[in-house]
């Protein structure tokens, strides 16, 4: 975790071993060990009262619904909600980035026929609704490049702490995390190529080279050690058809029941086998074949391509990714 904390300084939570409870857009709280600074004023274990602010054309966060749901969860503070119109009257179905962009630049927007900076205009609308609450929660659209400045400007005008309520994809906090991680890679001098898939490899017990597919051309790439971090079923690091489940790049063994009707539970939140689909590894995080030995001596796996854990139920997705990413990288480094 220290490694993560260093790479991503805008995350909080390292001061304690306890989990934090972060309110999310449906109105429940989600336990987590680390959280972006932008949500820290909203933690559910604090007892200051909260005003949740929603925007009338942003359907992913309904403030009154979230507030009522939080109250039902028994949070130790009062929650009120208000729905306002975003300054400048964005069209229905505007992207979250469309909300974030003008806040980032504090661009001019037209309010009641008058042009004025958007942060001030938003703060004014919310201030009119504030009734002594010490903190104000917005859907997670408070800036992409400069979220801190956006929050600081709003806090200044509202005289209250401001936090974000994380929503489903596309998530700006997630994009900010991605940017921070790529920046850290760049600083470390890593070569990065994205956008074209690795589709093939050469080698038997050891991977000699991999091929990147570009529009019908196959371009070879070589390395001493390889780490497979292609994701799970969602990221296509694990694929399936009616008969079987597989790992498409290196053909690593993915344990799964033969009958696809055994891949799931009959209840939506039941014990789903599919949630645990992924490769099995040895202690050195090398994927194992069906007979229990490493598929390749120089291939390791990290993150969601790993099997055997149900991250939605455990809420362990990022934790496993961070821990195994670190360990796989370390082991690969030691092997070079």
């Amino acid at each position: 975790m220290e490694f993560f904390d260093e790479a991503v300084p805008h995350y909080r939570g390292s001061h304690t071993d306890r989990n934090a409870l972060v309110p999310t857009h449906g109105g429940t709280v989600k336990p987590t060990a680390r959280y972006p600074a932008s949500v820290s004023a909203g933690l559910a274990s604090e007892d200051r009262d909260v005003l949740l602010v929603g925007f009338d054309s942003l359907v992913d966060f309904d403030a009154p619904h979230a507030a009522a749901h939080l109250e039902a969860a028994g949070v130790p503070f009062e929650v009120r909600a208000v729905t306002v119109r975003f300054p400048g009257d964005l069209r229905a179905d505007a992207e979250v980035t469309r909300y974030a962009k003008p806040l980032d630049t504090d661009g001019e927007t037209t309010v009641d026929g008058r042009s004025r900076p958007v942060r001030g205009a938003l703060a004014e609308r919310v201030a009119a609704e504030l009734d002594g609450e010490g903190r104000v929660g917005f859907p997670a659209i408070l800036g992409d490049d400069r979220p801190h400045r956006v929050r600081a400007a709003l806090e200044d005008r509202l005289d209250a702490d401001v936090f974000e309520v994380p929503m489903g994809p596309p998530s700006l906090p997630g994009m900010r995390l991605e940017d921070a991680l790529f920046d850290a890679l760049d600083e470390a001098g890593v070569s990065i190529e994205t956008g074209n898939p690795v589709v093939d490899y050469d080698g038997d017990d050891r991977i000699e080279q991999v091929s990147v597919e570009k529009h019908g051309a196959r371009i070879p790439n070589t390395a001493d050690q390889y780490v497979l971090a292609t994701g799970g079923l969602v990221g296509k690091g694990v694929e399936s058809d009616r008969k079987r489940v597989s790992e498409p790049v290196f053909g690593c063994h993915v344990p799964h029941p033969d009958d696809r009707y055994d891949w799931f539970d009959t209840e939506a939140f039941g014990d789903h086998a599919f949630a645990r689909f992924g490769v099995e590894t040895d202690d050195s995080l090398r994927p194992l074949n069906g007979r229990g030995s490493a598929e390749f001596e120089n291939l390791r796996a990290a993150g969601s391509v790993l099997g055997g854990y149900d991250f939605p139920a455990e809420k362990s997705g990022s934790g496993v990714s961070i821990a195994t990413g670190y360990a796989a990288g370390r082991r690969a480094g030691e092997a070079v």
Binding site: L90, R91, D93, A94, E95, V96, T97, R98, A100, K101, P169, P170, L172, M175, V234
Partner: peptide
């Protein structure tokens, strides 16, 4: 899968709310 990652990559949708983004 409707994950909307494409929408966040769209430079037009970010500045123009008349443009509903690549997923749409």
């Amino acid at each position: 899968y409707k994950c909307s990652t494409c929408d966040t990559s769209c430079p037009v949708a970010e500045v123009d709310d008349d443009f509903p983004g690549p997923k749409f």
